[in-house]
Simulated scan of single mutants.
Amino acid sequence: MSRLIACDPQLSIKLELDNPGGSHKYRAASHIVARAIEAGEIVPGHTTVIEKTGGNFGFGLLAACQKRNVDVALAIGLGFSQFKRDLLEGLGAELIGKMQLLEGATPREVIEHHLAHQHTLGRHYYYTDQFNNVDNVQAHRCGTGVELGQQLLAAETPQRLLFVGCAGTGASFTGVVQALRDMGFDVRAVLVEPDGCDTRTGHFVDHRLEGMCVGVTPPFLDWTLVSDVYRVNLAETLSAQRHFYRDQGFHVGNTTGACLAVAQRLREQAAFEGRHIVMLGYDGGHWYPDLTQEALSGTRDAA
């Protein structure tokens, strides 16, 4: 169970960066793999799990599979950082389709090719398919969200909550809010997006806040749970990260920083008075060394 820290009387954060793999994505990865093993779709020592990701789901998947003696093959788009690609490979993931990607293939096309030719390749693949696998939501509704609710109850937190979160697949946002409501909490949920993006209409722009608004409409985001949408820029995100490290000693990732920036705005709005703000600390800031350098550069420029 990841820690819940009370930052102050108004704000609590569940530190999902404590998980194996370093993020909340381990929850879904572990749940999907365990269910597939139970169903006989993954046979340890024989089956290779295959997925298109170079982000936190890849690290969560690797952590979930290795302890179960299951190999992992990843198709990682060239847009992902070389740092993450090298680290995943160094930790034991097989990076597939390198030449195909260089020749212009998409990660999805690489996956489709390997699934279609798995017998020729002498492999037996299981595609976790995080953007279409409903176990992704259940992992957070039955796991993350229930844990959070139990921790809030143990801390005697007010029942009226303001959940601030973001969406890649939308699974954690939907699962956690549903779980808290199942447990009797009065939850108002705020979705955080980068400036220029509009998830509801499917409008996306290039941005640096990796992990949210990933270029596709979140398949698992239940819009009936979203009360409000707030947008944030990179400068606000980096500032929130620095302040959180100063105050709490944790270097959180950019999605958490973005949510922290919005949470600070919401404190000052009368409409949200009386609600306790709750967030997930999705991952650690060490995954984003380029943003750390950008923050350092900005600090020097200001000086």
Rank of each mutant, 00 (worst) to 15 (best):
H119S: 14
M183N: 09
N136M: 07
F185Y: 14
E147P: 09
V146D: 02
H124W: 14
G170N: 01
C166T: 15
D186L: 12
R200N: 12
A116C: 12
A155N: 13
A155T: 12
V205K: 10
T157I: 15
H114G: 02
V177C: 10
G143V: 11
V137N: 01
D182A: 10
G145H: 04
C166A: 15
T169A: 04
G184K: 11
H117G: 05
L121M: 08
F185E: 07
L153Y: 06
E112H: 05
C197H: 09
G196S: 12
V190Q: 04
Q151V: 02
P194G: 03
V187P: 08
V190A: 03
E147R: 04
E112W: 00
N133F: 10
Q150C: 05
T144S: 04
D186V: 10
T128I: 04
C197E: 05
T174E: 10
C197I: 00
Q178D: 13
T157P: 11
Q118P: 02
H203R: 13
L152I: 12
H117D: 01
E193F: 10
G149S: 01
D129Q: 06
V176M: 01
G175N: 08
V187F: 14
L162I: 11
T169Y: 07
V190P: 06
A154H: 10
R123E: 06
L148P: 04
E112S: 08
L191Q: 12
V176S: 02
G122Q: 02
H113E: 06
L115E: 04
A171G: 14
A154I: 03
G145Q: 04
V110K: 01
H113Y: 08
V192P: 06
R123I: 00
A171T: 12
T120R: 06
A116R: 13
T120D: 07
T199W: 01
L121D: 01
P194C: 01
V164L: 10
D198T: 05
A189D: 06
V176W: 03
G202Q: 09
G170H: 09
G202Y: 10
R123S: 00
L148S: 08
P158G: 11
G175K: 00
V192R: 07
L180R: 07
C197L: 03
T199C: 03
Q150T: 00
F131Q: 01
A167P: 04
T169Q: 11
L153P: 11
M183A: 12
H113S: 05
L153N: 15
L121P: 00
S172C: 13
R181M: 15
I111H: 09
V205Y: 06
H119K: 15
T157L: 14
F163I: 03
Q138S: 13
A189W: 08
P158Q: 11
Q130W: 08
D129E: 05
Y127F: 12
G168V: 03
Q138T: 13
R160N: 15
V187M: 11
V137I: 15
G170F: 08
H117W: 00
V177A: 05
N133R: 11
V137A: 06
L191S: 09
L148G: 02
F173I: 11
G184T: 15
